[in-house]
């Protein structure tokens, strides 16, 4: 489907769902930017416009703010700065996430959201600053992170062994995590034959395997349909209620239901 046609349909659906004009404008701008940058087919990336608009409408109906859980600090990001050549991507970024908290990292495309998460995960070096992780880390990359020729259960075994889990624990844990996302991972389907959304579910389940204390999720819902998207947020809330510290990178500025902290990485000059 052409981007313009899909975006027009999305705009109409957002109006139909009663999404405020400024919110709808933000969503359309972010979505268009994502499609333009990735070159993805909108139907593949976001699904039908009706379903995506309904998801957005659900997500912008903010839940009442939760009281600060006040758990122990799990993730401390202190004064992170990062430049690529002459372009400063991150400048003195700070973030503290406690047990039982969800932090959303938002910002325009190219604002350094994934770089920030990569720095938190220790995959990218910053020019300045420090990250302290209290406990074990689980990381869900935006793409990749799976082995094309392995089936889902084998991914669970692989990650589980690293976490010191037995085969049975890893497989059962993985299947339980998948069930929470309304996905049955049993069978012999190799990762390369899974749909984009299902592969992201696999990625997400792998990140949560072995009970890590801090979860770093980089736009993990790419390719999810509406139901999966809602399942994803429910799973995030379950993790939060279990005392995990969660950082979710999102390109949807209004996806803040149940989020305790929002870190906006949009450069200040872009906001003026």
């Amino acid at each position: 489907m052409r981007h313009d046609t899909w975006l027009d349909a999305l705009a109409g659906e957002l109006r139909r769902h009663g999404v405020a004009a400024d919110t709808a404008g933000n969503v359309l701008a972010e979505t268009a930017a994502h499609l333009w940058e990735s070159g993805d087919d909108p139907l593949r990336a976001f699904g039908p416009p009706q379903a995506y608009a309904a998801t957005v409408a659900d997500s912008v109906r903010l839940a009442p703010p939760r009281r600060a859980p006040g758990g122990p600090v799990r993730l401390e990001v202190l004064g992170i700065s990062k430049r690529y050549g002459r372009r400063t991507v991150l400048r003195e970024v700070n973030l503290t996430v406690r047990a039982g908290e969800v932090a959303a990292v938002v910002g325009a495309n190219g604002s350094g959201k994934s770089t920030f998460l990569g720095i938190c995960a220790g995959l990218v070096s910053p020019d300045r600053g420090e990250v302290r992780v209290h406990g074990a880390l689980g990381y869900c990359p935006q793409g990749g992170g799976t082995s094309d020729f392995l089936v889902p259960d084998e991914h669970f075994l692989l990650v589980g062994a690293g976490r010191g889990m037995s085969r049975t624990e890893a497989r059962d844990g993985g299947r339980a995590g998948a069930a929470a996302l309304d996905w049955d991972p049993r069978g012999r389907t190799q990762a390369r034959h899974l749909s984009g959304g299902t592969r992201q579910k696999l990625n997400l389940v792998m990140a949560g395997l072995g009970d890590p204390d801090v979860l770093l999720l980089d736009e993990p819902y790419q390719g999810f349909d509406q139901g999966s998207y809602l399942d994803f947020w429910q799973q995030v809330h379950r993790w939060r209620d279990a005392g995990k510290a969660i950082v979710v990178v999102t390109h949807l500025l209004n996806t803040r239901d149940g989020v305790d902290t929002v870190l906006d990485l949009t450069p200040r000059e872009a906001l003026r």
Partner: peptide, 8 residues
């Protein structure tokens, strides 16, 4: 830059 600290 990344330090793992024992869980409190």
């Amino acid at each position: 830059h990344l330090r793992f600290v024992a869980r409190r």
